[in-house]
């Protein structure tokens, strides 16, 4: 297992008012993303625990692209990864931002 941590300054807060949301499942080639609205509007953070060791640079690139595209201000993402490919990671992150922007608690 490898733990990775990223913190970004972002230009705008994420949409919606929900406090938290979760998407995905921890399985081979899949991951879960727990997203919580707990940070200041101009920040976002991602904590990753991954079964695939040695892919820090790929994570950095995927997350940099995600933050640039979605500007998820105020959100903390906690990720348990079962060795998902970068496209699956991007998809789950996008789903998490979408879900926390929906109505609900």
């Amino acid at each position: 297992m490898e733990d990775l941590s990223f913190r970004h300054h972002v230009r705008a807060p994420a949409g919606g008012a929900r406090k938290s949301a979760i998407v995905g499942v921890v399985a081979s080639g899949n991951l879960e993303v727990l997203v919580e609205r707990v940070l200041p509007d101009a920040e976002c953070a991602l904590e990753i625990k991954t079964a695939a060791v040695g892919f820090g640079d790929v994570w950095r690139a995927v997350i940099g692209d995600f933050v640039e595209r979605y500007s998820p201000g105020g959100l903390r993402f906690s990720i348990n990864d079962g060795g998902a490919r970068p496209d699956t990671v991007s998809l789950r992150l996008a789903q998490a931002v979408r879900l926390i922007a929906e109505h609900g608690q």
Partner: peptide, 29 residues
């Protein structure tokens, strides 16, 4: 629709105390 209230949800992070020892990924619920 909308009626589920979860107990000890994933945000509480009550994960397995054993999987880490085996170097295996946890799931929050």
């Amino acid at each position: 629709a909308g009626s589920l209230i979860e107990f000890i949800g994933p945000e509480q992070r009550e994960v397995s105390p054993h999987l880490r020892i085996f170097d295996l990924p946890e799931q929050f619920d």
